[in-house]
Design a protein around this nucleic acid. Structure first.
Lengths: 346, 346
DNA sequence: GATTCGAATCGAACTGGTTCGACAGTAGAG
DNA sequence: CTCTACTGTCGAACCAGTTCGATTCGAATC
């Protein structure tokens, strides 16, 4: 394996000159520069990452800390992961994937061994136990998911409050006046999944403003529970004409639930969800939905992280909280309410 | 940040002694060992990963190279990824996730910069362009997915031929004599997804042996195409009583397709798929299926890789091709054929 | 013609670990 | 009582880069 010493020898210069020729950190004569480049090419030289990291205190690697929880919707996670890793690569960074369930220990280990230049945290909880440590360490951190206290870190998330409002608006505008919101299970909230109640509160507030009835429920996040839950809610509110889904499993299960009752959207009921476009395509979900923008959020987090890593630490910008605004992918599952249902008796 | 020099000073010994006390590579008096350990604790010392990598030529990191293709079933990929990363961590390794679409370039870069100790390749193609390079480089590699020529690497995959046979057997044993197999799209095969025809050939051979009629189709891997495809095949073969699915999107779409035609499994048709258990749970798929054993394959690949990394290079074991045998998760979607259908006319 | 400046290059030091060889001290063998 | 062997420790070298300071040389300035 060729070292920079071999390159220098082949080009007839000293190691330092070869280094400067490659980094451009000092002026080097064109003739020498070309000789060094030729030697690099000929020997197939690639700098040793460990040695470079040691000398520069930069690893060109970021860590991606996820929390992969059984009862949350794991497949949706992949979108975030790829968004992060692809953006990182474009910026010249590699991504260390950490699925360690003990996030705090992982953070400590990677930070103090100086394996990475920064951290991206996924699925951040309302009171995330990784956050105090993240604020203390030398490497910057960017979060996907809004914590209760976003001080000292950069935060990127979907605006779930605005999303809840937008979902109600979309159905209200089509003429619906009685709605059902199906959220993630209660214990996802208990564990710190604040996005659940943020969306629910946004929807509730908007419904209140508009004088719309909104029934709110938590539901299971997998079958067969979720199928039963959906059927139950539809039974309980026969006059409801609009359905809001903030629960991927509910979206996946709804087509068969509707089919089993001989219903379809938007003829019998209008539906709006909140999930990623890729998810919709994969599972052929025919429902209009607010795009959860997973890849965009991952990408934004990395961009910000890299700019902090490479930026002048003295001229540090203030930390940002960036909530991206909801965008509805219209798949035609919202229409005027069915007159039959509106006239239904309880 | 404390270095081993700081630790040595605090313990009143030389740097080398501190190093030996921590690594155990030479005998050290108990008294000194305890003083060093105390100093480590007190200073919060963690070895610098770059320095260690430089000195030992070991990074304690493996690279995970995926091919994340839009038209393959991305969410299923996460199972493999987590299987790899969790097993790696248990063995003391971190995982570098490489989603770079140019796998060859990534392999070259990571190998020659000595960023990782070994490679795990996912979604390996029949003639995978990363393989020749992988055989050449100094770091060992383990594959998930069986290539045409598995020389010089360790390979782990589901036995797709046996899986195809097992699927036919399961339906034959229940009394079915006319079956339909729905595979991944043609272009997945063209790109090197050999598992598609391996399973198809296994099923065909077994069907021939048993004298069973088997209609084989490629189908789309997303909606709305896959829904239309399924309906079409059911129309074309009204006397077929058993359905084999080697296409995750087909499995996801089937419940609504069946519901739309007023059919259900296993009453009107028996169904067996091939997908992961996690996938089935997430999407509430009620079909019996051969578990694709994603996490197990990922785990096995890492175990083998680590043993090669840490093993004596002189006493190198021969490379293995390990095909794990299919296991059917019975979800009750196979029963005796419906007499109505068997008597149906074309 | 001496002085100053900048460009181009080199040598040495530094990053933070591991490991080899040497050496002192002690215990056991002969 | 000497010789050998072993244990415990230290200093120095090494891994492969980057960077600081010094030096040389030619051109421009006064």
């Amino acid at each position: 394996m060729a070292t920079i010493g071999d390159v220098a020898k082949a080009a007839g210069v000293s190691r330092s000159t070869a280094s400067y020729a490659l980094s451009g950190n000092r002026s080097i004569s064109e003739a020498v520069r070309l000789r060094v480049l030729a030697a690099v090419e000929e020997l197939g030289y690639t700098p040793n990452a460990g040695a470079r990291a040691l000398a520069t205190s930069r690893t060109k690697t970021i860590a991606l800390l996820g929390r992969f929880l059984d009862d949350e919707f794991a497949p949706a996670m992949l979108q975030y992961i790829l968004g992060v890793s692809e953006t990182a690569r474009k910026k010249g960074y590699d991504t260390l994937l950490v699925s360690d369930e003990n996030g705090v220990a992982a953070l400590k280990r990677l930070s103090s061994s100086r394996m990475v230049d920064g951290f991206v945290l996924l699925n951040v909880a309302e009171r995330d136990d990784r956050l105090p440590l993240l604020r203390d360490i030398r490497q910057p951190g960017a979060l996907v998911g809004l914590p209760g206290d976003p001080d000292g870190v950069d935060v990127f998330d979907l605006d779930f409050v605005a999303s809840g409002r937008a979902m109600v608006d979309a159905l209200y505008d089509a003429g619906h006046r009685e709605l059902v919101l199906v959220s993630q299970p209660e214990h996802v909230v208990a564990r710190g999944g604040a996005y659940v109640w943020r969306l629910a509160n946004g929807a509730r507030d908007r419904a209140d403003e508009l004088g719309v009835t909104l029934h709110r429920y938590h539901a299971h996040s997998s079958q067969p529970g979720i199928g039963r839950d959906l059927a139950d809610y539809l039974d309980r509110h026969p006059r409801a004409t609009g359905l809001l889904l903030n629960n991927e499993a509910a979206a996946a299960a709804l087509p068969s639930v509707l089919a089993a009752r001989g219903m379809s959207a938007p003829e019998d009921i209008s539906v709006i969800g909140r999930y990623s476009d890729a998810f919709a395509r994969t599972f052929s979900l025919p429902f209009s939905a607010i795009d959860s923008a997973a890849d965009e959020l991952g990408a934004r987090a990395v961009q910000q992280l890299v700019s902090r890593i490479e930026g002048d630490p003295d001229a540090a910008k203030p930390h940002t909280v960036e909530l991206i605004q909801p965008r509805i992918d219209d798949r035609g599952s919202i229409a005027a309410p069915s007159p039959a249902r509106m006239g239904a008796t309880h």
